[in-house]
Simulated assay, not measured.
Amino acid sequence: MKTITKIFATSLAALALFTATNLKAQTTETMSTTSTMMDSGMGFKVGVGISGGLFRDKSPMDYAYGADLKLQWDLTKDVAITASGGYTKLMGKNNSLDPDFIPVKGGVKVFAIKRMYIATEAGAGIAIQDGAKTNFIYTGGFGYEWNNGLDLGVRYEGYVNDSGSTTYFRQTGQYALRIAYNFKL
């Protein structure tokens, strides 16, 4: 992987972390203001999750697994903006190709019915292997967030790969299950 890509990914993760901690550190509102914010749904969450997925029969991939860190900014009680990064490993059929990458995505989460949500994200899969190119990633899914912080979601995650990549595979996607725990900031 190119040094500039490593620096960019590290800088992006550090910026997200420092922004979240600075916003928390600079809040000095009173209890009534905090209660009003919580009633309106505004707030920050950090979710740590693991996921596993399966591909269609026609795909050159067999299954995938990964872990992620997701930042969630609740704009209202019904709408949130998300940003995530992590690690994903795709396992090819017959061990022909096993690409792994760092997905960096941004998206929107809409709570349609109480704690049940519909989510969509788009971003890039930064390749780890030498000679590999960055993928375009898009997702869509739904899930449920419990009061205790547990988050269970199901999604389709599609990959569009650059044909010049050493880890090239045709456009494909996985059906994945994500289990996570959200920490309120």
Rank of each mutant, 00 (worst) to 15 (best):
L97M: 10
K58S: 15
K77R: 14
Y87R: 05
A127C: 13
E145H: 06
I102Q: 00
G92L: 05
F101K: 04
G53D: 08
A83W: 00
G43S: 06
E145T: 14
G140W: 02
S51C: 11
N147A: 12
I126A: 14
A112K: 09
F55Q: 03
E145W: 01
Y63A: 09
Y63Q: 04
G143E: 05
L54E: 01
K93W: 06
K89F: 01
L90G: 03
A124S: 15
D130T: 08
Q129H: 11
L54D: 03
K93G: 09
K45H: 08
D68C: 12
P60V: 09
R115Q: 15
A132D: 06
M61H: 07
G140I: 13
I128A: 08
G131L: 10
V79L: 14
G49F: 06
G86L: 06
N95Q: 12
S59G: 10
D78V: 13
S40R: 14
K109M: 10
V108G: 00
G107C: 03
Y87T: 09
N148G: 09
K45S: 12
Q129T: 10
I137M: 11
Q129A: 15
I102P: 03
T139E: 09
P103R: 04
N148R: 09
A112G: 10
K89E: 04
S84I: 02
N95I: 11
A119K: 03
I118T: 03
V79E: 04
Y87S: 05
L69Y: 08
Y65I: 11
G66V: 10
G41S: 12
D57Q: 11
I113A: 13
Y63H: 13
K89G: 02
A64H: 03
S84M: 00
I81L: 15
I118M: 15
F55N: 12
L75W: 01
I102N: 04
K114Q: 14
T82G: 10
N94W: 00
G43A: 04
E145A: 13
N135V: 05
G131K: 05
P103I: 02
M42L: 11
Q72H: 00
D74F: 00
G85R: 01
G41W: 02
I118C: 12
D78N: 13
P99T: 02
R56H: 05
Q72Y: 01
V48T: 04
Y138E: 11
T88P: 08
K93V: 07
K109F: 03
F101D: 04
T88L: 11
K58G: 14
R115S: 15
F111E: 05
V48K: 09
K109Y: 02
R115T: 15
V79K: 10
L71Q: 06
I81M: 14
T82H: 00
V46S: 09
G131D: 07
V104N: 04
F55K: 08
A122R: 10
V110F: 11
G47R: 02
I128G: 04
M116W: 02
Y144K: 04
G140P: 11
K58N: 13
M61Q: 14
Y63D: 02
D62T: 01
D98P: 06
D62N: 12
T120W: 07
K114G: 10
N94S: 13
E145R: 08
A122T: 12
D130H: 04
D98K: 00
S59M: 02
E121W: 02
A122H: 08
K89M: 05
K93T: 14
V110W: 13
I81C: 07
G47N: 07
P103C: 05
P103K: 01
P99L: 00
D98L: 03
T88S: 09
K133C: 02
F111R: 15
I50Y: 05
